[in-house]
Nucleic acid binder design. Sequence first.
DNA 1: TAATACTACCGCCACA
DNA 2: ATTGTGGCGGTAGTAT
Length: 331
Amino acid sequence: MTDAPSVRTAPHTVAVAVQPGNHPFEPAVACEVFGLERAELGVEWYRFLVCTEAGRVDLGCFTLESPHGLDELAAADTVIVPACQPDLGPSPALVDALQTAAARGARLLSYCSGAFALAAAGARDGHRATTHWMYASRLAAAYPAITVLPDVLYVDDGQVLTSAGTSAAIDLSLHIVRNDYGSEVANGVARRMVVPPHRDGGQSQFVAQPVPATPDTNALGPTLDWMVDHLDEPLTIEQMAAFALMSTRTFMRRFRATTGMTPQRWLALQRIAHARRLLESTDASIDLIAQAAGFGSAANLRLHFQRTVGTAPTSYRRTFRTAPALAAAAL
DNA sequence: TAATACTACCGCCACA
DNA sequence: ATTGTGGCGGTAGTAT
């Protein structure tokens, strides 16, 4: 969280390591997010490599061949390790490549049980990480030096970023795009993939029922919409509960059950997202944006912004202020 | 940066 | 008996 995000000016290389025992889905997420041509976004996109140790890998359902080897993985700017068999462990050559990449300052990502490979490479000592909830206790037991967060979608620990089960791989990947290119571009990618634009990393892996068992008569949907529509006003639990026609106690319980976080936190994330959009696409003053996003004061906006985005609002704008043409195309 | 005043949060529990 | 509700109160977190 120490470096400010920066727009990639030179081709930034993203490499995914495909190993025997991988499932196809996670490498495919990397291909989808980082590997597709994104001409419509008007930015210079990543250079994307699929790297293997032996040139060809049997993935069970099919065999994958690639000309790129682990030397290219070790030289990449961002390295992705998808889910692997925790029992097998990464090969010594892969561990070596990961260590070389880490020493060069490369960004290391894992999807699902790929966290075991990063841990084996020693990249995780003293840091926070996550993995699929099924593996969390095993990871913590095998690598006591790591603080394992068992119930989040992904963890951004600066150089090393880890994510939970399959769909969290998409969330982490979009998080990377957002850090590199800003939220307009990340939203463009999400829109084309037809996935929700942004799920925060701290969101719980255990969010309610993916599909409601019965048509949910008292769903929070309308209340969430209402909250987003009134972001610029100070909203108290009491007001939100009143809108939802519930007691405050029940409202908070239901809110956590359906979103995986507290109302306050959710509201803060929506406000930050709105502030990001305004910083990227308008020249309004920080104070005005603070008002419009419901932070009340510029000081308060800075506090929240720094904490969740890791940058000051002005430096974020300096980096991501989009060309008017792109901003106009976005809406 | 620190102190203060507020409210959000959540465990507990009686009750429907 | 089981499940959801909502008031109470202590603590944690936020705003100024």
